[in-house]
Amino acid sequence: MVGTPPQRPTLRDAQMNTVTATHAYQPKPIALNDPGWVRFGLIGVTLAIIGLFLILPLATVLIEAFSKGWTAYSDSLAHPDTLAAIRLTLLTAAVTVPLTTFFGICAAWAIARFEFRGKSLLITLIDLPFSVSPVIAGLIFVLVFGAQGWLGPWLSEYDIKVIFAVPGIILATLFVTFPFVARELIPLMQEMGHEEEEAALSLGASGWQTFFKVTLPNIKWGLLYGVLLCNARAMGEFGAVSVVSGHIRGLTNTLPLHVEITYNEYDFVGSFASASLLAGLAVVTLIVKTYLEWRQKQDRKAV
């Protein structure tokens, strides 16, 4: 995770974590004990790659950002355009994360609790934003809501601006962050089963009481994990947002777009200063993510 937008966390991350979690407590068969030079060789290669592709760029971001001193750094962060970009990024996250969370819980509930036709198709569709290139995602919205798009004439009749405006940015971000929470919750809720909820109902709890007192506490770590990844993506999304934003300075520039614009204008300190914020976000995300994974593991061990 480097200065540029936080790397797109994939499902594979989450799965690999569970795999290591289960294997960590099993004694290692002797047959799988490789000779020392293989072990040190592999560890060395891994460390070298991480150093070259992760640590070095991250360091570069900080070095470049502070290359002209602390004042230049803080000045460029305090620039109205940068502040506008930060505000827009926060606004986008503030709108998309709750919506994605709400959708994720609904979808996970529907898929884990009910049997219906086309369920596997629905699961596949939820994954669609993972497999579509973000640029295409942005383009879809231009084709639908743009001036020449399907809904373009209708929208301009009512003077509603979607493309090259904040609603477009939010829509594009929603599209790319769509699966994060749902994908995290579906396997969790399926594994949980419904017995505890049925027990709550049989004890006289209402549907809401059951959800808040039984379901939610059981899925909370997974939910927070999904929300965290979703937030990182919402703040760091570049491709889809870039297509719909129109790069209007101070109005439709999010932080990642601002990094690009300032860089293209040879304002390296400004560019890397903004990038350092995103890098900071990535580091915080990583720390919180590790904590959440640890908590989830604790909970799972308990079961």
Partner: peptide, 20 residues
Amino acid sequence: QPVKNRQIGFVFQHYALFRH
């Protein structure tokens, strides 16, 4: 009537205790 109105107590095979 839904289950909550039936005044029944249900004990599950796998206990279904609230784990948290």
